[in-house]
């Protein structure tokens, strides 16, 4: 079984999507013959990447939610891949893990639906979608083991996803959030904005500047 892990975050490093794929990889290493890692951080897919993806049995996309949907650079990649993958002479199953900065995982539902629609257009088999809320916590919690503390729900969801991947099975989409109070997440995120602004030489009130 050939599996492609596709990071759809435009961030060069430190993305929540990368962290999710890293966690997921550990579940798949025993089953997969080969695991390829791709990072679609630009709005174009190389010919070599298109050819390699056409040979895979499983494509697993992880990406951040942008304005209720798929980030535009990744969308351009998907449009490019649609025609090529439609010509692939094999069954390819697609799994998607979308994460958002909002607390509620179900806010990823439309992006996941769009990925399902893309699969239909490209003639691919839909596997499963996972929508993760409070994604802002993921990259900062790399040291916390999957399945523990705020990553308890994530551990369950990724375990189930990995089981489905290993059997090329389709399953219902799952929406989760961090095992962490919403009010504390909100407060932590807002303090983080202030601290980042301060590090950039701004005052707290500057966050509210109007043009």
């Amino acid at each position: 079984m050939k599996i492609a892990l596709i990071n759809g975050s435009p961030k060069i490093s430190g993305s929540a999507s990368g962290s999710i794929l890293q966690d997921l990889r550990s579940f798949l290493e025993d089953t997969a013959d080969t695991i390829y890692d791709y990072h679609f951080k630009k709005p174009i897919v190389s010919a070599e990447e298109v050819a390699a993806l056409s040979e895979c049995d499983i494509l697993i996309f992880a990406f951040p939610l942008y304005v209720d949907g798929i980030p535009s650079h990744l969308l351009r990649c998907l449009v490019q891949l649609e025609q090529s993958l439609a010509k692939a002479n094999k069954e390819i199953t697609v799994y998607v893990v979308a994460n958002c900065g909002f607390y509620e995982g179900h806010q990823n539902r439309l992006a996941i639906s769009m990925m399902e629609n893309w699969c239909t257009k490209a003639g691919l088999k839909w596997g499963q979608g996972i929508g993760i809320g409070a994604g802002g916590m993921l990259s900062g919690n790399r040291s916390i083991p999957l399945g523990y503390g705020p990553k308890k729900n994530l551990g369950k969801a990724l375990t189930r996803l990995a089981e489905n991947v290993c059997q090329c099975a389709s399953d219902e989409n799952v929406f989760i959030t961090a095992n962490f109070p919403k009010i504390a997440y909100k407060l932590g995120a807002e303090i983080n904005w202030w601290l980042t602004a301060k590090a950039n030489g701004l005052k707290r009130r500057d966050l509210s500047l109007r043009k």
Binding site: P10, K11, Y66, P71, S72, H73, W193, T196, A197
Partner: peptide, 11 residues
């Protein structure tokens, strides 16, 4: 494309 840097909020 957007780089996800959040500079439009904090920079």
């Amino acid at each position: 494309h957007c780089l996800g840097c959040f500079g439009c909020w904090t920079k």
